[in-house]
C-alpha cells in the first residue's frame, strides 16, 4: 500500500458515492448511463470472486464488499426505484460492441487459462471501456449536469492515481502487472478529453457542462 494507491481507492469510493447521492437526493437518474453502471457491477462481480478463495487483508475485503454493494445499489436505483426518470432512449450504446471483443481478448490474453483468471482478466478489460456508454450519452445529448461531471472527474482521478501507484511499485518493489497496467493506461486516455472539458467548462463556469 502506498499513498497513490490509497488516494486512488478513496477517489474511486468518492466517485461512486457522489453518483449514488446524486440519484438519491434528486430522486432522479437523468443523464446517467444505466449501461455503464451495469458494466461496473459486472466488473466488480467478476473481479472480486477471489473473496471466496484468498484472504489478502481486512482493508481489501472490506473495500471489495463496499464496492460490490454500492455498485448494485446504484443499478437498483436506476433500473428499479427511479426507472421512470431514466433516459433509456439516450442510453443507446450497443453493449455487444464492448462485450464481444472484451470476452474474446480475455480468453486470448491472460495469466492462466483458468476460470478465475479469465474472469479477472475480463473484469480488467471491461473496466477499461465500461465508462464509454456514459461518455457516449454525454456526447449524444451534448450536456452533463455538473454533479455528473464531478463523478467522472473522481473516476478519472482514481485511474490516474493508479498509474502513479504502478510507477511507484515498479520502482520500489519491481512489481509490474502487464494486463492491469496496459488496460489502466488505455482507460485513463478515455478521460483526458473529459478532463480538459471539466477544467475549462465546469470549474470556470457554473451549472451544466455543454459540449462545444
Amino acid at each position: 500500500m502506498n499513498i497513490f494507491r490509497l488516494a486512488g481507492d478513496v477517489c474511486h469510493l468518492v466517485a461512486i458515492i457522489i453518483l449514488l447521492l446524486k440519484i438519491w437526493r434528486s430522486r432522479s437518474c437523468a443523464g446517467i448511463s444505466g449501461k455503464s453502471q451495469v458494466l461496473f457491477a459486472i466488473v466488480f462481480t467478476t473481479r472480486y470472486l477471489d473473496l471466496f478463495t484468498v484472504f489478502i487483508s481486512p482493508y481489501n475485503t472490506i473495500m471489495k464488499v463496499v464496492f460490490l454493494a454500492l455498485s448494485y445499489a446504484t443499478v437498483y436505483l436506476i433500473y428499479m426505484r427511479f426507472r421512470n426518470t431514466f433516459n433509456s432512449e439516450n442510453d443507446s450504446f450497443r453493449l455487444e460492441f464492448l462485450l464481444v471483443p472484451v470476452i474474446g481478448l480475455s480468453f486470448l490474453e491472460n495469466y492462466a487459462f483458468t476460470p478465475l483468471e479469465i474472469l479477472w482478466t475480463f473484469s480488467i478489460f471491461l473496466e477499461s471501456v465500461a465508462i464509454m456508454p456514459q461518455l457516449f450519452m454525454i456526447t449524444k445529448t451534448g450536456e452533463a449536469e455538473s454533479i455528473t461531471t464531478h463523478y467522472l472527474f473522481f473516476l478519472g482521478l482514481y485511474r490516474a492515481l493508479y498509474i502513479a501507484n504502478w510507477v511507484w511499485r515498479y520502482h520500489t518493489e519491481g512489481f509490474f502487472d502487464q494486463i492491469a497496467v496496459v488496460s489502466g493506461v488505455v482507460q485513463t486516455i478515455f478521460y483526458i478529453d473529459f478532463f480538459y472539458l471539466y477544467v475549462t467548462k465546469v470549474l470556470r463556469g457554473r451549472g451544466k457542462m455543454t459540449l462545444p
Partner: peptide, 10 residues
C-alpha cells in the same frame, strides 16, 4: 498457480 502474483489491488 504459484507463479501468479497475489492480486491485492482493487
Amino acid at each position: 498457480d504459484e507463479d501468479l502474483q497475489t492480486k491485492d489491488e482493487l
